[in-house]
Amino acid sequence: MSTSYEKIQLQAMVPQTLLGKRLDQALAEMFPDYSRSRIKDWILADQVSVDGQIVNKPREKLLGEELIEIDASIEVQERHSAQNIDLNIVYEDEHILVINKPTNLVVHPGAGNANGTILNALLNHVPDIGSVPRAGIVHRLDKDTTGLMVVAKTIPAQTHLVEKLQAREISREYEAVVYGNLIAGGSIDEPIGRHPTKRTNMAVVQSGKPALTHYRVKQKFRAHTHLRLKLASGRTHQIRVHMAHLRHPLVGDQAYGGRPRLPKAASDIMIETIRGFKRQALHAIQLELEHPITGEWMSFKAPLPDDFVNLLAVLKEDTALNPDDLV
């Protein structure tokens, strides 16, 4: 792995409005393109001077009108290679990129997936994105979940989007098909953490982090339900874990769904479709956010993929053939 660094040189006068503020707090307001945690790291690394003197104490109080100089660097790791992988681009400008992710595509390289990921594709499509942490990836989708993702092309854009995501000011809506009949919508407010025995899985555990999922019923079938869901937090596998916790796991979910469930008198096409749906029936259908630079409110939609559409058609036909079974 080779490592390079991008130089960051900033200079500004502390305004009187920040009189009495801590150094790290003041700099976060003066240089909003960079996160407070990054600025704190620079202070601790002796990369910030106040009136010509290095200050390495984030809690140092300011009097106003001091000259701040930052001479820092951002590590750019080049362990991942750029690869010519097609991206379904929904929107792009000089600051952000919104893509519609297909199934069977990993977002970030990891064990068993060193190449062929969205990150590799981003490095090819936007060569400068290597200087942005995580190649600008703000949030992830599981390998077999389809739909919308936003990517930051610059550090200022990423800083803003991460803050908005943490403040729950980016709206992410999904559609899913689950086993069983849900009569009405609701919310699932249960903490999620690492599964106590299956270390690659997540689970509802009281020691986990808070997680909140809202859902409503879009369409009821005789043995399945089509849902619209909205995340109020962003835990790993959140929708999949929460729906499994309700005993209504997603169709095709290999980790949380158990064996495929077939209704009585299922047709051959129904059996083939349910057993052959080898990924979780989950699609990130809508993404809404404030543009990190212009402040414009933006809304994006991605149509349901073909396999999801086919699944709904088969479930609709099955229900039509067995109307008396509809709850």
Score class of each variant (00 low, 15 high):
residue 158 Q to G: 07
residue 165 L to I: 14
residue 313 A to D: 09
residue 279 R to M: 08
residue 232 A to H: 01
residue 123 L to H: 08
residue 268 D to Q: 11
residue 223 A to H: 09
residue 121 A to V: 06
residue 154 T to S: 08
residue 18 L to F: 07
residue 169 E to L: 13
residue 247 R to N: 07
residue 313 A to L: 04
residue 175 E to W: 15
residue 322 N to V: 03
residue 159 T to Y: 02
residue 192 I to R: 01
residue 29 E to P: 02
residue 301 K to L: 02
residue 57 K to N: 13
residue 251 V to A: 06
residue 26 A to L: 01
residue 148 L to Y: 02
residue 249 P to Y: 14
residue 314 V to D: 00
residue 214 H to I: 07
residue 186 G to Y: 14
residue 93 D to E: 08
residue 216 R to I: 01
residue 326 L to R: 06
residue 270 M to I: 02
residue 14 V to S: 07
residue 76 V to K: 02
residue 225 T to E: 12
residue 79 R to E: 00
residue 309 V to N: 03
residue 2 S to N: 13
residue 242 H to W: 13
residue 191 P to Y: 09
residue 281 A to M: 05
residue 128 D to T: 12
residue 108 H to A: 02
residue 312 L to E: 05
residue 111 A to F: 04
residue 149 M to P: 10
residue 287 L to C: 08
residue 121 A to H: 11
residue 66 E to A: 11
residue 326 L to V: 15
residue 10 L to P: 02
residue 307 D to V: 04
residue 149 M to I: 13
residue 265 A to D: 00
residue 295 G to S: 06
residue 214 H to P: 03
residue 111 A to K: 12
residue 302 A to E: 01
residue 260 P to Q: 00
residue 221 F to I: 08
residue 6 E to Q: 10
residue 64 G to N: 12
residue 293 I to G: 11
residue 246 L to I: 04
residue 35 S to N: 11
residue 324 D to E: 09
residue 103 T to L: 03
residue 255 A to M: 05
residue 255 A to C: 08
residue 286 Q to M: 10
residue 196 P to Q: 12
residue 166 Q to F: 12
residue 320 A to I: 14
residue 184 A to N: 15
residue 227 L to E: 03
residue 87 L to H: 00
residue 122 L to T: 13
residue 136 G to M: 06
residue 225 T to Y: 09
residue 165 L to M: 14
residue 239 I to G: 00
residue 178 V to Q: 04
residue 103 T to D: 06
residue 326 L to T: 09
residue 248 H to A: 15
residue 307 D to K: 03
residue 312 L to Q: 02
residue 326 L to D: 07
residue 280 Q to D: 00
residue 228 R to W: 05
residue 286 Q to R: 05
residue 280 Q to A: 11
residue 258 G to P: 02
residue 232 A to S: 10
residue 251 V to K: 09
residue 118 I to T: 00
residue 132 V to G: 08
residue 35 S to A: 15
residue 107 V to A: 13
residue 107 V to K: 08
residue 296 E to S: 11
residue 129 I to G: 12
residue 40 K to H: 04
residue 106 V to K: 15
residue 46 D to R: 04
residue 49 S to N: 11
residue 265 A to V: 02
residue 237 H to S: 01
residue 46 D to C: 14
residue 160 H to A: 15
residue 102 P to F: 05
residue 53 Q to H: 11
residue 165 L to C: 10
residue 278 K to L: 06
residue 48 V to D: 01
residue 30 M to I: 05
residue 14 V to L: 02
residue 1 M to L: 10
residue 19 L to N: 09
residue 36 R to I: 02
residue 29 E to H: 02
residue 48 V to M: 04
residue 105 L to I: 01
residue 202 M to Y: 09
residue 62 L to Q: 15
residue 14 V to K: 00
residue 238 Q to K: 06
residue 191 P to V: 08
residue 88 N to D: 07
residue 54 I to G: 06
residue 235 R to L: 01
residue 233 S to P: 11
residue 181 N to A: 15
residue 42 W to H: 04
residue 145 T to C: 00
residue 261 R to F: 13
residue 154 T to F: 03
residue 311 L to V: 01
residue 1 M to W: 11
residue 126 V to F: 11
residue 320 A to D: 14
residue 145 T to A: 05
residue 197 T to K: 08
residue 193 G to Q: 14
residue 153 K to R: 07
residue 248 H to I: 14
residue 292 P to W: 11
residue 34 Y to L: 12
residue 66 E to V: 12
residue 76 V to Y: 03
residue 52 G to P: 03
residue 52 G to W: 14
